[in-house]
Design a protein around this nucleic acid. Structure first.
Length: 275
DNA sequence: GTGCCTGTTACCTC
DNA sequence: AGAGGTAACAGGCA
């Protein structure tokens, strides 16, 4: 669920929450596999009594910078943070907690338990698997053009692959392809120049719009996206194709269809997006 | 209750 | 290199 806009929203909120500059006094882990590759005991030993110097984002990873390395968190499908002053008993889906010296309690909740907390001295382990940050100056038209030219795969699979461009997930990929009028099955090396230019604009546009709306919260289940304060995002009301199967394309009025591409549910307008 | 679906990623085989 | 399957897990939904 959390893609770049949702993760960025959480990181910005974490930065305002008063954790920066404070020491991790205590760590509680109730689901051992939530940490990797260290064991819970090793993880606690390394991170305990460390001060959080900064909180940043890379792709869909949240990075807590400590003096001795980086504590990274990937929320995967259903990871969520909550911050409070009360040291309540951990509930069924709360698997990890950081207690700070200033009294703040950061609790990690993850219904499906796919999320992972890791500690690494070097950030290489993340850099090695992630590609360009789409909201920075590193993302340029020539780079995108080259990447597309040098690969032979469906554009949807390409955009979902974090090693090329980091941060896009199923929702924003469908939205970006719709905006650029590209069919998700189009081979990367066959995307026309004009469409490549459109995609180059569409990717930052859909991500920034999602961020401005504080992310996308579909449905109302436990697995959904909620921010640090437990509030829903607003971007679900602005989606053009995702989860709008059978509704009218906002651009041409044809019915939006849902299909499967790269084993993922895929929404598109069959009139605007031709193979 | 049953069976199938899900917004992510890693790992495996062909 | 790329495609496809499976697995990790729990809940929502028909």
């Amino acid at each position: 669920m959390p893609e770049l806009p949702e993760v960025e929203t959480i990181v910005q909120d974490l930065n305002k929450s008063g954790l920066i500059g404070h020491k991790i006094k205590q760590i509680i882990i109730t689901w051992p596999r939530i940490v990797d590759p260290h064991s819970p005991d090793e993880f606690i030993k390394i991170a305990k009594n460390q001060t959080v110097k900064s909180i940043e984002r890379r792709g869909k990873y949240i990075l807590f910078k400590l003096a001795n390395g980086t504590l990274s968190v990937h929320l995967r499908m259903t990871g969520k943070f909550k911050i409070s002053n009360e040291n309540t008993v951990l509930t069924k889906h709360e698997h990890l907690r950081l207690e700070f010296a200033n009294g703040l309690i950061l609790t990690y909740n993850d219904t499906r338990k796919f999320g992972r907390w890791s500690f690494h001295e070097s950030i290489d382990f993340i850099e090695n698997k992630l590609g360009i940050e789409p909201l920075t100056k590193d993302f340029t038209l020539p780079k995108l053009t080259n990447l597309l030219k040098n690969h032979h795969t469906k554009i949807k699979a390409f955009l979902l692959n974090q090693k090329y461009i980091a941060g896009l997930g199923n929702i924003y990929v469908d939205e970006a392809l719709w905006e650029a009028k590209i069919h998700p099955l189009t081979p990367t090396n066959e995307v026309p120049v004009e469409q490549t230019k459109a995609l180059f604009k569409a990717i930052p546009n859909v991500l920034l719009t999602g961020l401005q709306n504080q992310g996308t919260s579909l449905g109302k289940g436990k697995g959904n996206y909620y921010n640090l304060s437990g509030e829903r995002g607003g971007h679900q009301y602005k989606l053009k194709v995702f989860s709008r199967t059978g509704q009218d394309c906002p651009r041409c009025g044809h019915k939006i269809i849902k299909t499967v591409v790269a084993q993922r549910g895929t929404h598109l307008c069959p009139h605007c997006q031709k193979v």
